[in-house]
């Protein structure tokens, strides 16, 4: 269980995250929504410890994550994979190497620097790529791929970390609707199959409704909504997104990226079939 208690983060005068209290059970698929600047991104970065909280504590399965440092911190970061809006791959390295970089914390630094990978590690990387349906790009430079492909490489890298939690910071904000769907489907698939907890920041309501079992709404650094997608009423949306006086001011469509034609008809799911039964 991932527990966040009274976590506050201040940048100078401004308070990005204000006394947030959350408990996320294992295997949950959580969507965090809110306007930009609501503190969603800061919250996720604090969980991964890319940013340190100013106050409060974060713990995972009894380990106080927010107090870790050095090698222990890096081990936590390995267990808590992160996916970024801008993919954050190494553009000049090939896709396979990028995926293998997910193994960095599993191995000795010397072997890493010499890029000596075992056959099994490479097989795993290929399997992860195949699962995301981009194995054919394995030898291309990551920078030459399209955004959607790059994000899938990033997910493959996250899988290589063998994480317990995946944090996704706006994973589909830079993608076109088609690719957004593929990426979200992958995340949902990983959550469903491996039972990995997924916490994802989303800026679109309907995506959150569609994929997440639990939605957390944030506004001005505080959690203002926490519940199942069905409980997300217009009033709740108004609390999250503010709106100019009237709840109806935010039609669902504004924050939607979905496309009308169903991409994946029921019963036909070849795309995300795992390469190997894992």
């Amino acid at each position: 269980m991932l527990a966040i208690r009274h976590v506050t983060r201040r940048f100078g005068e401004t308070t990005a995250v204000d006394k947030v209290d959350l408990e996320i059970a294992e295997g949950e698929m959580v969507g965090v929504i809110g306007r930009s600047g609501a503190g969603k991104s800061t919250l996720l970065r604090m969980i991964n410890r890319l940013i340190d909280p100013s106050e409060g504590e974060i713990s995972f399965q009894g380990t106080q994550v927010s107090a870790l440092g050095g090698a222990a911190l890096r081990r936590w970061q390995r267990d808590c994979a992160m996916i970024f809006q801008q993919f954050n791959l190494v553009p000049r390295l090939d896709v396979l190497t990028n995926v293998l970089l997910g193994r960095l914390n599993h191995r000795s630094t010397a072997l890493n620097l010499l890029s000596v990978y075992s056959r099994e590690e490479r097989l795993k990387a290929i399997a992860a790529l195949e699962r995301l349906d981009i194995a054919q790009t394995a030898l291309q430079r990551a920078g030459t791929l399209s955004g959607g492909q790059q994000q899938r490489v990033a997910i493959a890298r996250a899988l290589m970390q063998e994480p317990k939690v995946i944090l996704a910071d706006e994973p589909i904000a830079s993608l076109d609707p088609l690719n957004a769907k593929v990426v979200m489907d992958s995340l949902a698939d990983i959550n469903a199959r491996e039972g990995i907890t997924v916490v994802t920041n989303l800026h679109t309501l309907d995506t959150a409704r569609q994929y997440c079992s639990r939605i957390i709404g944030m506004a001005r650094g505080s959690v203002v909504f926490d519940g199942a997608p069905e409980e997300l009423t217009r009033e709740a949306v108004h609390r999250i997104y503010g709106g100019e006086g009237r709840a109806e001011a935010i039609p669902e469509e504004i924050t939607s990226t979905s496309i009308d034609t169903p991409l994946r008809p029921q019963g036909e799911q070849p795309r995300l079939e795992p390469a190997l039964a894992g």
Partner: peptide, 21 residues
């Protein structure tokens, strides 16, 4: 560009590995 570095940091890479990769 520091995005790749951030990506590796989030994956638990140490300083030398982040710089190198």
């Amino acid at each position: 560009d520091m995005r790749a570095e951030e990506g590796l940091r989030a994956a638990g890479a140490n300083w030398v590995e982040r710089v190198w990769f």
